[in-house]
Simulated assay, not measured.
Amino acid sequence: MIQPYPLKFQPDFKERVWGGRALEQFGFAIPDGAIGEAWTIADHANGRSTVANGELAGKGLDEIRAELGSAWFGTKGASAKNGRFPLLVKLLDCQDDLSVQVHPNDHYERLAEGELGKTEMWYILDAAPGATIIYGLKKDVDRDAFAKAIAEDRIMDVLETVPVKTGDAFYIPAGTVHALRAGVLVAEIQQNSDTTYRVYDYNRPGLDGKPRELHIEDSLNVTAYGDSGASRMETTLSGSHSWLKLAASPYFVTEKGQVDGRWELSATPDSFVIHIICDGSGFIAWEGGSLEVKRGDSLLVPAALGSYALEGKMTVLRSQLP
């Protein structure tokens, strides 16, 4: 029987019209092209990450989930809808503006079979001076007003644009109209879904030279008019070795903490733990060994691991199931 240990993955990289080469700064050997996304912990039909360390090296997250199940991932560690790993973790390099988009919830009738809705959160790892994102509709914009603005090609008139800086966090429930924009490097924690409805894409060509498909009717259907439940916060920490809650959803809870020395932690039988190293470096240590970690790494701590420790000087995100 394989003894549980923290898993580090080889990401699945995605070329995007808005991507670049900034993910190389994390030590990734990224493929040629404009690479916009690294799917660092992924178990989806459209992309999977493979284990890069230990006895399970070379196996996909989907294989490990099928073989080891709740013993490693917890009693809550698989989607009730499709049996897959319930979350998807990405790093995003935004060298240009992303499309204005919105995601459905789990109950939208036009979802593909077995696909989940997409509630997500962003943590800004780096932001250029003056960087902004699109974050919701302006107050009192209803479906009719939104549809009219789209039809008249003045969608930007009804969208909220907000400034961002390194360390900001954004919670984006399904139904929130949003778009990352040029000049940000982002860690994203989301439901395990690849369903995006594009509302507007700046009339630009895609990687194939043709305009990318828009999904106007679906976008209008799934948008949460009024209060979508979205929230944003600055995440300055008051000290080390305590957690600041950034997002609490029905699908994940994400917190931020500062490691300074050795921080004793533990996993519980009901959920795996995901750690993203935002800056700094150090080690994750457990009874059977230790693993060096650095900025940009994503780690999956099995539910069955029990006690472990983070050591060094680094800022980390922790995500687990509620």
Score class of each variant (00 low, 15 high):
41 I>T: 01
161 T>M: 11
270 D>W: 10
272 F>H: 03
216 I>D: 01
142 D>H: 04
72 W>Q: 02
217 E>D: 14
198 R>P: 00
218 D>L: 03
28 F>M: 04
277 I>C: 04
218 D>P: 09
285 A>G: 00
56 L>C: 00
265 L>H: 11
5 Y>L: 13
265 L>W: 01
252 F>A: 05
259 V>F: 11
128 A>T: 10
197 Y>E: 13
149 A>I: 09
62 D>A: 13
124 I>G: 08
107 H>E: 14
44 H>A: 04
214 L>R: 12
27 G>M: 09
32 D>C: 10
69 G>H: 02
133 I>N: 12
227 D>V: 01
250 P>G: 05
97 D>T: 07
250 P>R: 10
302 P>G: 08
151 A>H: 15
123 Y>T: 01
164 V>E: 04
126 D>A: 15
137 L>M: 15
72 W>E: 07
73 F>V: 07
32 D>L: 13
56 L>G: 00
221 N>F: 11
308 Y>T: 09
32 D>F: 10
209 G>H: 05
216 I>W: 08
59 K>P: 05
102 V>L: 08
300 L>E: 12
104 P>G: 04
273 V>R: 04
167 G>L: 05
275 H>R: 09
160 E>S: 10
68 L>M: 13
168 D>I: 07
297 D>K: 04
125 L>T: 02
140 D>I: 08
186 V>L: 13
180 L>T: 07
230 A>N: 10
106 D>T: 10
239 G>T: 08
277 I>R: 06
252 F>L: 13
262 R>I: 15
7 L>M: 12
161 T>I: 06
107 H>Y: 15
288 G>D: 06
256 K>E: 11
24 E>G: 09
22 A>N: 13
190 Q>N: 07
70 S>T: 15
139 K>M: 14
314 M>R: 00
299 L>N: 10
240 S>M: 06
63 E>K: 04
313 K>Q: 15
210 K>L: 11
131 A>K: 06
249 S>D: 02
112 A>I: 01
37 E>S: 05
69 G>A: 01
114 G>K: 06
248 A>R: 01
322 P>G: 05
143 R>H: 05
215 H>P: 04
310 L>T: 04
172 I>T: 12
3 Q>R: 14
69 G>N: 10
259 V>M: 06
180 L>E: 03
224 A>N: 13
119 T>P: 12
98 L>S: 03
213 E>F: 03
79 S>P: 06
211 P>Q: 02
47 G>N: 05
89 V>H: 05
149 A>S: 13
317 L>A: 05
215 H>R: 02
30 I>M: 00
4 P>W: 06
189 I>K: 01
275 H>I: 07
174 A>E: 06
248 A>C: 12
252 F>N: 08
318 R>N: 11
170 F>W: 12
72 W>D: 11
89 V>C: 15
320 Q>W: 15
